[in-house]
């Protein structure tokens, strides 16, 4: 198990079910989770207090997940890891996600257990 104490994760999803589920699952895994309901709130939260990793839905009102990811990659905290969690499952969607700078891409419906493994993996790689 990777060290999760003190690791902060920002979760953004406009679907309350997914948002609550991911927040609960990652909290149970030991992470400190802050969940927000849309892209604008995600970008505001990111700028106010950059987390260690961001879990972003792609299709959100206002700023999309791709928009938030682009903003992150152009910010001074561009190194923060980002995992996209989306129902957009076409190869071209996944290609776009990685092209914009995602560290991983998980397609909905998803396995919550697998999501935690992916988050652990990204953090192990990016935090050494």
């Amino acid at each position: 198990m990777p060290a999760t104490d003190g690791v902060r994760i920002l979760v953004a999803d406009d679907d309350a079910d997914i948002r609550d589920l991911v927040e609960f699952k990652l909290s149970q895994a030991g992470y400190t989770v802050h969940a927000v309901p849309d892209g604008m709130a995600a970008w505001d939260a990111f700028r106010a207090d950059p987390p260690d990793l961001v879990v972003l839905d792609v299709m959100m009102p206002g700023l999309s997940g791709f928009d938030v990811l682009r903003n992150i990659r152009e910010s001074e905290h561009r190194e923060v890891a980002v995992l996209l969690l989306s129902a957009k499952s076409r190869d071209s969607d996944v290609d776009t996600g990685f092209a914009v700078g995602a560290d991983d891409y998980v397609i909905k419906p998803f396995s919550p257990r697998e999501l935690v493994h992916r988050v652990n993996g990204i953090l192990a790689r990016t935090r050494g």
Partner: peptide, 10 residues
Amino acid sequence: DFLGKVRGGP
């Protein structure tokens, strides 16, 4: 509602 969002054991 959740059935369309998660897969696997859950």
